[in-house]
Nucleic acid binder design. Structure first.
Length: 281
DNA sequence: TCTCAGGGGCGAT
DNA sequence: ATCGCCCCTGAG
């Protein structure tokens, strides 16, 4: 295991919160899966971690990028502390972070999240991994990598549906096809916000919300936060926005409000009301 | 056992 | 611009 100094990083809220569905906490350690590796992180002494990646060991470049170790969290918290709701959330969820997850994995998984609750999402993501992903054993625990687009692309819609993903199967199929047959996977990193969104919404089954999940949770657009039903409730109920506002106008509003850090401000609010839905009353 | 809604998006009006 | 429906799963 490698040791890393990691003060002010809320592993619990960051890894087990709403931006990733790939982590489990088992005996005080966090285990996560991607399309390429299993990551184990064990908190130690409050301000450091022990970590390892499998099967390719010691992949620090991956970890550094995934945890976004270069972020100045204090500065961001200062910028987004605009009101009591955010301040309260920072207290409730101290040092919650935004991750830099893999593009392809994030896209595929958030396609699966449509019209599901968190529990169902976690189950169905694991079902897909278990059925079509590579098995890796760490600490005598069985994990599965999330399958690559190329693997999914070679499956029929019927085969995909054996995992219980229902109408999302044809969406996964179209995404897998585009990821396999085009260079989107490389090109996406050179695109600006508008171009990236256009490229993503070309995929059948990917709309505003899912593409914003990808922009925010994978592509590091710090000014974008996905506006799902909960975020919309927050904006209309707490911030008195008109419920009939178009998605695009709400997105512009929250981007402006958090001065380019909507990914962070929006996520602090989202985690807060998820734990305390009564504040929306 | 049955009903119902759930981290959206599509296709028909 | 609005609205029913999509396939499945877990909660009540």
């Amino acid at each position: 295991m490698n040791k890393l100094k990691l003060p002010n990083y809320n592993l619990e809220k960051t890894l087990l919160g709403g931006q990733s569905h790939s982590w489990d906490k088992i005996n005080d350690a966090y285990y996560g899966f991607t399309q390429h590796n299993i990551i184990k992180i064990t908190p130690k002494n409050n301000d450091e971690i022990l970590w390892q990646t499998y099967p390719k060991k010691d992949n620090f470049e991956f970890l550094k990028n995934y945890l976004r170790l270069d972020i100045d969290i204090e500065n961001i918290k200062r910028i987004i502390s605009k009101d009591n709701y955010v301040a309260e959330s920072i207290k409730t969820n101290p040092d919650l972070r935004i991750l830099g997850q893999d593009f392809e994995e994030t896209l595929l998984i958030f396609i699966l999240t449509q019209h599901k609750n968190i529990k169902a999402i976690r189950k169905c993501v694991r079902d897909v991994a278990k059925k079509f992903g590579e098995r890796i054993v760490v600490d005598d625990i069985e994990f599965f990598l999330f399958p690559e687009a190329e693997v999914l692309n070679n499956l029929t819609e019927t085969e995909l549906k054996t995992t219980g993903i229902g109408f999302r199967a044809k969406y996964i199929k179209d995404a897998a096809r585009i990821l396999t047959e085009t260079d989107l996977n490389q090109r996406i990193y050179d695109l600006n916000e508008q171009e990236a969104r256009e490229a993503l919404t070309q995929i059948h089954g990917v709309g505003d919300k899912v593409s914003d999940c990808v922009l925010s949770f994978a592509l590091k657009f710090d000014n974008i936060t996905p506006l799902d039903v909960w975020s919309k409730r927050i904006l209309t109920s707490l911030y008195k926005l008109d419920p009939k506002m178009k998605y695009e106008d709400m997105r512009r509003w929250i981007d402006d409000y958090f001065e380019g850090y909507a990914a962070w401000g929006g996520h602090y609010l989202w985690e807060y009301v998820r734990v305390h839905p009564q504040v929306l009353q």
